[in-house]
Design a protein around this nucleic acid. Structure first.
Lengths: 340, 340
DNA sequence: ACTGGCACTCGCTACAGTCGAGTGCCAGAG
DNA sequence: CTCTGGCACTCGACTGTAGCGAGTGCCAGT
């Protein structure tokens, strides 16, 4: 059970070498490449212990060792040295994000940036509606019986939805409706609107009742129920980089998982107080992703968190680098959002 | 040069068999599976001619024949028999699209539907802004110096954009601005707005000039210049289906191409009077896609065309089936749009 | 013009043999 | 008690050979 310092150093060396070369690493080459100060034989003994403890394994009897998920986990938790971003990278991030004019723009730039810097698949969740407040509600008449409802959230998100009215509705009534919904709902967290929407119907003057009833249904759908979360994805092509050695040969399950918004949300969106989360191989709850690792974090203006972002790659990935990048990008985006 | 009927029948049989089995087809098995009424030897002679003409080729000297891009082309143009959709498929399309509440919803459902029915990658272009008219422009005050510009197009598309004003702007001025821009621009094709926007500045009362100038810059960006085209994509996982036999082993170039909006637009968005377009292998202008085929068509309410849609797959694909599906889905979507 | 027959090509598979990286173990040195 | 050098062993990767068989091209015959 006792893993002394040298054994840990050996594990670290194995992880680093394997990540770099993509090939099982043997005792001899290990000693050559790292200054461990001991002979290959000693390393072999250490390796035997590490294998017994489940941190590394041999693909074939006569091959070198490869880290297991458990080994990566230990590496990430205790062995990886922080890899500070190069000034060039910092500048790249800043420059890339500076040009954004729009929430959409910010999200798109961020996801591309992440994919490019980590050379992996990147996912960015739009600021969650549940964590946003209503900034403004707009009603635009489209025809006599149709309105366009536009909701603007304080996080910058804008959602629109067509409302089919039960009866033609005069322009003045539209103005009244708009005034009423804005009075009641502006400034409220979207997740807390349902009771207020209910009250809205009860409090509205009789002649607006039918219209308000229809409107409130749509409101609830827009504010709470419907596809409330959006995602941006980039860098899928990076999956095909590792020459199919990663992901045990088939990209299919990964690509499938990436198409499922729900799955991605689970991956990226479950933002907890803990700042950054690394899920390695089997630690992923999603079966399709048991050959992959995910590094994710929350982001938002200041210390608040409005959404998640992260990257997905092979278990054999550069954890220190990826973690540093994800963290840095999230912080920059947070600062950017705080400015608005 | 003369390709008599039997040679064409042989080519058709080769294409059909190869698409079905994914294996080079030899003269013997061909005769067994199809009623050609001649012996393998005769078929071999025909094959030799077809090969000389460049319609088929041998992967190895001792293997069967495989269609070339040119062979597929001939097949698509002259040999494929129309494959009518099954009633079940028609119903599936109708049912799937019926539930859409929204333009966004329509597009998403369509792209998923296409991917599912064809078992390939599907791309759907949102109704092109260039082909839309302005239905309404809305200005929502966000702060004293910030407005949110919301543009609603007659195709159902909604674009929004933040406008940073040079100076604080009173509520009344916002109303005036809104009135002015709507008066001038509603009903106009987006592609034809630039001169009108210019006139807008000149015609506006002096005290609104600075505000209008800023606004018009953003207007132009929103209406014409900026990422005016949007796309939805689905079914990427289908690429990994053919066990890497398609696409000569690497998905990388394909995935890369799919990430480039510009590339996809070129593929799907170049809608011409001709209803449906099939691009086979080398016929694709994009290098990354020379191992793929694209079936695309325009869609829109009635006979107008507001955007494109299509699917992408291996050159070895079921052309008749895919063509029928794409055509049918496009027509249904067109009908759906016409109802609004 | 079509067919049957025949010789030929060549990729695929199986098998045997060699090579070498890497291991586990053990006895001895520090 | 820990580390080291040495040694026997394992086993995957690679190479070369041989046989098989699907498929072809060609040719003579109907």
């Amino acid at each position: 059970m006792g893993l002394d310092d040298r054994k840990l150093a050996v594990l670290r060396a194995i992880v680093e070498d394997y990540v770099a070369t993509q090939e099982p690493v043997g005792s001899k080459s290990l000693v050559e490449r790292h200054q461990l100060g001991v002979s290959p034989a000693t390393v072999r003994n250490d390796m035997a212990v590490l294998e017994e403890e489940g941190y590394i394994r041999q693909p074939h009897t006569s091959a070198g060792r490869v880290p297991t998920d458990r080994g990566y986990r230990l590496f990430v938790d205790r062995l990886s040295r922080v890899k500070p971003l190069s000034p060039a990278e910092r500048r790249a991030i800043e420059r890339f994000l500076a040009g954004a004019v729009d929430l959409d723009d910010v999200v798109h730039r961020t996801v591309r940036l992440l994919a490019q810097l980590t050379r992996q698949v990147a996912v960015v969740q739009y600021p969650s509606l549940a964590r946003s407040r209503v900034r403004h509600l707009e009603l635009v008449p489209i025809s006599t019986t149709r309105l366009m409802l536009v909701m603007i959230a304080d996080t910058g998100r804008v959602e629109q939805r067509l409302v089919e009215m039960p009866a033609p509705i005069p322009a003045d009534d539209v103005l009244d409706l708009r005034r009423l919904v804005n009075e009641k709902l502006v400034g409220v967290f979207l997740s807390e609107t349902p009771p207020l929407v209910q009250a809205l119907i009860e409090d509205s003057p009789p002649h607006l009742r039918p219209a308000m009833t229809t409107l409130s249904t749509v409101l609830l759908e827009t504010l709470v129920e419907r596809h409330e979360e959006r995602l941006a994805l980039a860098g899928t092509a990076n999956l095909a980089r590792g020459g199919l050695l990663d992901f045990q040969g088939s990209l299919r399950p990964i690509l499938e998982a990436l198409e499922e918004q729900v799955v991605l949300l689970k991956l990226i969106g479950e933002v907890e107080p803990s700042t950054l989360r690394v899920r390695i191989g089997d630690e992923n709850e999603i079966d399709n992703l048991r050959a992959a690792s995910v590094v994710s974090t929350g982001y938002g203006p200041g210390t608040t968190i409005v959404g998640g972002m992260g990257v997905l790659g092979p278990t054999r990935m550069d954890y220190p680098g990826t973690i540093a990048t994800v963290r840095a990008v999230a912080r920059y985006v947070g600062e950017l959002l705080a400015q608005n």
